[in-house]
Amino acid sequence: MNTSFDVHAIYQLMHDSHIQFSYKGPITQDVLISLGDTIKEELHRDDCDAKVIRRVFSVLVEAAHNILKYSSEKTVLDKSKTVGIGLIGIGKTPEGCFVVFSGNFVSPTEAEDIKTRLDYINTLSPSELTRNYQQQMRQGTISANGSAGLGLYEVARKSGRPIDYSFTPGPDGMMFFEMKIVVEVED
């Protein structure tokens, strides 16, 4: 391992960006559970409304499962189960809203697909969003890996504003996909 990196700089960046916590690595179901527990506890301690805690958790779950299933960077766990590697975390905006953020590499084809879907979702009003979500829920099919094509809709519904995302070209022709999802504290 290269030890020339600057831990203080990482700390300072997280501190200055109001990041409460962040994790990078294989996103397993166990990691998701402990992240979920940590954030639930922390939000509970801050006297956050149960509704807000659930919204944040819901967005966290969908973002984590996106990485687990679609990250192009993968690792094999025991029992030969493959999981995606990525970065996920929670921060706060200056207005006191929560931000769930995620970042992972995807293939260019996957990037194109995600972009098309997010651009479409970002044009929808809240009522159109619910209608589309319902339609996909009733008429869509679920794939063998458990994807129902609903994750990004759910994230948008819980966020109530356009999803902030970007793609940055990375090594080996892969694209780094990052997403910042703001969860409002008030209705």
């Binding site: 659930r54 958790f57 819901s58 779950v61 969908e62 499962h65 829920m137 009733r138 869509g140 679920i142 458990g146 994807s147 129902a148 609903l150 994750g151 809709y153 759910e154």
Partner: peptide, 16 residues
């Protein structure tokens, strides 16, 4: 009380 989207889809199919 809480379902992720994958669960919501399966519950919708079960209700149908």
């Amino acid at each position: 009380f809480f379902q992720n989207t994958s669960s919501s889809k399966m519950i919708t199919d079960m209700l149908a």
